[in-house]
Computed example of a mutant assay.
Amino acid sequence: MRRRWALGVEYDGSGFSGWQRLNRPGQPERRNEPTVQAALEQALSFVAGEPVAVVCAGRTDAGVHAAAQVVHFDGPAQRDPRGWVLGTTSRLPASVCVNWCVPVADDFHARFSARARRYRYSILNRPVRPAMQRQYLSWVRPPLDATAMHEAAQYLLGEHDFSAFRTVHCQAPHARRDLQQVSVTRTGEVVTVDIQANAFLHHMVRNIVGSLLVVGQGERPGAWMAELLAGRDRALAGPTAPSAGLVFLGPLYPAQWQLPAEVTS
């Protein structure tokens, strides 16, 4: 017998070429291009005793981390959640672990069942680069006005065409997204951007942050963000912020799926 399982996966993306597998299932990874998906599928396949393919809630780029990536897969029903968690984690590199496993209904889908996704971007704002926690922080030397950045970010709330903040390589069929929450706060030397939307375009968060940094350094007024939205021209927006500092906090699902509280809303 088989059943569908959902996993909560945590990873440090520093040593990976992103989430998405760069090869066909069961084939060796491309040389020097490890991916989180390939590592996870290899570990799950060992525990299952058969090839396992996973579907994730949201793909992350090279160098991007995840606190609660959610995946689903179909595997042997006789395994228990504890076995999947401990067995899989034992076969994963130190930078990846499985935090929980839950049996789910056959119509659960890690991507399509999610109603929202959340990211956090952390910026160390001081004259000297970081030594500690540097893989989880972006670094900006000039002083940033976090209040101005927060006010500028509010122009992005709601459903819009986010073409100005998508990469030219984005494969999404359209650029309309519903940005549900966004905030910019400062705690000491760290400026944090928290953002939630129904879904994101390729590089959308990093491109938004890059434009907010322009505002934070006083080079543009907050209303410029509204102009960028209306113009739909990526070439007019700010640069893409580095991947360091970006963490996928995880998706949010309706309570009907009975997943852990960290991914339920």
Rank of each mutant, 00 (worst) to 15 (best):
R118S: 13
E151G: 05
L92Y: 11
N32Q: 14
A261R: 09
T35R: 01
T264L: 03
S138Y: 03
H202F: 11
D80M: 13
W139V: 03
A244C: 13
G222P: 03
F112V: 00
A39K: 07
R120T: 12
H72Y: 08
G63A: 07
S95Q: 15
A241S: 03
I123W: 07
R79L: 15
L236M: 15
S138E: 07
A39D: 08
P251N: 09
R3A: 04
L228K: 04
V85Q: 04
T264A: 01
G231R: 15
D12V: 00
E50D: 11
L212W: 04
A146L: 07
R111N: 10
V215F: 07
A261Y: 00
A148C: 10
T89I: 11
A68W: 04
G245H: 11
C170E: 11
V184D: 06
P130W: 05
V52S: 06
Y253R: 01
R126G: 13
G158W: 11
P51N: 07
P51G: 05
V98L: 00
L229Y: 14
G218W: 07
L157A: 10
P254I: 13
A223V: 15
P81N: 14
P34K: 12
P76T: 13
V64W: 06
E50R: 08
Q258H: 09
A105Y: 07
F73W: 09
P25Y: 02
A175C: 15
V71Q: 05
E219L: 15
A153H: 05
F200K: 05
P103Q: 13
T240W: 01
P142A: 15
W84S: 00
S243C: 11
S95F: 01
A66I: 03
G218V: 13
I123D: 10
V209C: 10
V182E: 06
Y136F: 13
G87L: 08
P25S: 03
C56W: 05
W19I: 02
T147D: 14
V9H: 00
Q27D: 11
